[in-house]
Simulated scan of single mutants.
Amino acid sequence: MDITKISIKRPVAIMMVMFIIIILGAVSITKMEMELTPETEMSMVMIMTTYEDAGPEEVENLVTEKIESAVANVENVESISSTSSEGSSMVSIEFNYGTNLDTAITDLRDKLSMVEATLPDGCDSPNIMKMDMNSMPIATIVVSGDDMTSDELKSFAEDDIEPRLERQEGVASVDIMGGTEQEILIEIDPERLEGLGLTMTSIGQTLSAENSNQSGGSISYGEKSMTISTKLQMESIEDVKNTPIQIADGTVMRLGDIATVTETQKEITSISRYNGESCVTLSVTQSSDGNTVTAVNNILDEVEKLNAEYPDMTIEVVSESGSTIEDSRV
């Protein structure tokens, strides 16, 4: 069919067709719903599983890893990240853009039903949720490094990345998950403590006085031990050992002379992984008066600078909402 010849031979008919199209377009515009912040369906799903009274390592081994293995073969999965914390498992699944989430969730349910029977007793059934853009962080960043221990990785995220992200325009806060921390354990024989005229409380007060910038730590102990948070101004375990302690007769002794002071790993409260690899995750929350696009662009620029400064580290923005908003303008 030659459209050009028909248009020349029947100009009135062509004009009528164009007129009808214009009228329909005008009517459609008046019927179109418009919002300042329209609802947007994200290609992301979260699987939440509760396993009460279980520690993070137990949750990871008995729940999270099984769920990750089950859903890894679902079609159109782009990435999988997870956080195992005390009593709960959270697995986030990002699908390729354009994936039908209803179909994807049906596939996920089928996969999860195959492993649900293998989950430990007392573990609730996995709960699948679509992600709501308004409740999501504006950016999620994962940090890993082959030459760093887990506690070094977390310290790097807290000391070198978190402060720089929080200084960016439009950023309210940064939450860190995963990694481990070190703490100092002080063990004292109760009988010797009594003989020196000391109490656990008095030693704790002395440590706080020697370390005036300590941020609200707590001291807890069993029959023969006391735990001190490592969020101290003191820079090493030797500083703690050298803390002067005045006993009942006025003599001053080093804490290390009357107690056993050791450095150990703090109880793990969360475990973070991205595509099966251990990492530290930073979730960036937008300030109430911030602009999402501006804040995300600032974050992306800062992460690029961090990668240039620390070439041995892997610092990756795995999800952000700025691109989604910019794409919607096209």
Rank of each mutant, 00 (worst) to 15 (best):
S225G: 08
G222H: 01
S220Q: 12
N242M: 12
D249G: 00
Q205M: 13
S229C: 02
V174T: 14
L193H: 02
L232S: 04
G216K: 12
N213G: 11
T180N: 09
G204E: 14
L207Y: 04
Q182M: 08
A259S: 15
Y221M: 12
D249H: 06
D257V: 10
I219K: 14
Q182E: 11
E223Y: 07
I237W: 02
G170R: 01
G216Y: 11
D257H: 03
G178T: 01
T199H: 07
Q233H: 11
L207E: 04
I184N: 06
P244A: 09
T227F: 01
T180C: 06
I188G: 02
T201R: 07
Q182G: 10
G256R: 06
Q182T: 13
Q233I: 09
T180M: 07
D189Q: 07
I186D: 03
L198I: 02
G170K: 08
I245H: 05
T260R: 09
R192G: 12
T230Q: 05
E181F: 00
P244C: 12
E235T: 14
P244I: 05
M177Q: 13
N211C: 06
E223A: 13
I188N: 09
S173L: 04
L207W: 00
G256L: 11
N213L: 15
P244V: 04
I237K: 09
D257P: 06
G222N: 11
L232D: 06
G178I: 08
K224H: 14
A259N: 00
T199P: 09
I258Q: 02
G197Q: 09
T251K: 02
R254A: 15
A209E: 06
I219N: 07
Q214E: 15
S225M: 09
G217Y: 15
M234R: 00
G197Y: 11
A259L: 02
T206Y: 00
E183I: 14
M253T: 10
G222P: 06
G178R: 04
V174M: 10
S212A: 14
N213S: 15
M234E: 04
E210G: 15
I186N: 13
R254D: 15
I245V: 13
D239K: 03
V171A: 01
I247V: 13
G250D: 07
P244L: 10
M226V: 07
L255N: 00
T230E: 13
A259Y: 08
Q205C: 07
S202C: 08
V261F: 14
Q233M: 10
V252A: 09
S212I: 10
M253F: 11
I188R: 12
S218T: 10
